[in-house]
């Protein structure tokens, strides 16, 4: 019994050393898993398949956190309401003396874990995606009433070239130094998928 106890202690100590021996680096989140479909190249996709792939991205928290349905940005992998009750403000850039730019600049700050990109701000309320289905997001995205009067071409441009959108693939680290999770589709494939979908007439599947 005593011997077993000692052996157990030694084993657990060893285990502890192995598991917790190093305080840095912190564990990285698992590499994003690609959906089955994306294993084929995007060029071979039908517009419908491209839609699915695109939506894997657009429904990801890196996108939806800044497309809330209310006046509070979301943050983190659990999409909690932004700390300190930070608000949208009249022009989506925060309130008078608590602008997004009080803390967020044009690049990630990896010392502080504060993310940044040009024009860091919330999507306008009409572009709220939070709580919408994929089909609803797509409809809203194509509806000039909601999308700021963009043509399909302009929408594609926003989705594939806007720096704030593409930030999702370079999301930096959080306040704990832990890398933020990226969308589950690589950027290049996502861009191709958006273009394939648009070129195919931007079909929206039936609900």
């Amino acid at each position: 019994m005593k011997k077993a106890h000692r052996a157990y202690l030694a084993f657990s100590l060893l285990l502890a050393l192995l598991v917790f021996g190093f305080s840095t680096p912190r564990p990285h989140p698992p590499e994003p898993k690609l959906p089955e479909k994306s294993k084929s190249t995007a060029a071979e996709l039908t517009p419908e398949q491209a839609f699915d792939l695109m939506m894997e991205v657009l429904t990801h928290k890196r996108c939806v956190n800044c497309h809330p349905a209310d006046d509070y940005p979301r943050q983190g992998e659990d999409s909690h309401i932004h700390n300190f009750g930070v608000q949208r403000g009249p022009d989506n850039h925060g309130v008078a003396a608590l602008q997004c730019q009080t803390c967020h600049q044009s690049e990630n700050n990896n010392h502080a874990g504060v993310p940044g990109a040009p024009e860091w701000s919330l999507a306008p309320r009409k572009m709220a995606w939070q709580g919408l289905t994929r089909v609803e997001i797509a409809r809203s995205m194509l509806n000039p009433e909601n999308n700021g009067g963009r043509t399909l071409e302009e929408t594609v441009h926003h989705l594939t070239e806007h720096e704030l959108v593409l930030w999702a693939w370079e999301p930096g680290v959080d306040a704990n130094g832990t890398p933020r999770e990226k969308p589950p589709v690589p950027k290049a494939e996502y861009i191709k998928a958006v273009k394939t979908w648009a070129a195919g007439g931007a079909p929206i599947p039936e609900e």
Binding site: V19, F20, F22, H111
Partner: peptide, 20 residues
């Protein structure tokens, strides 16, 4: 301050812990 903080991050320290 910054150099000290960054160097600290680069140190790989080993710790013994008995319990999680």
């Amino acid at each position: 301050q910054m150099a000290a903080e960054q160097a600290k991050q680069a140190i790989k320290a080993e710790w013994a812990t008995e319990r999680n």
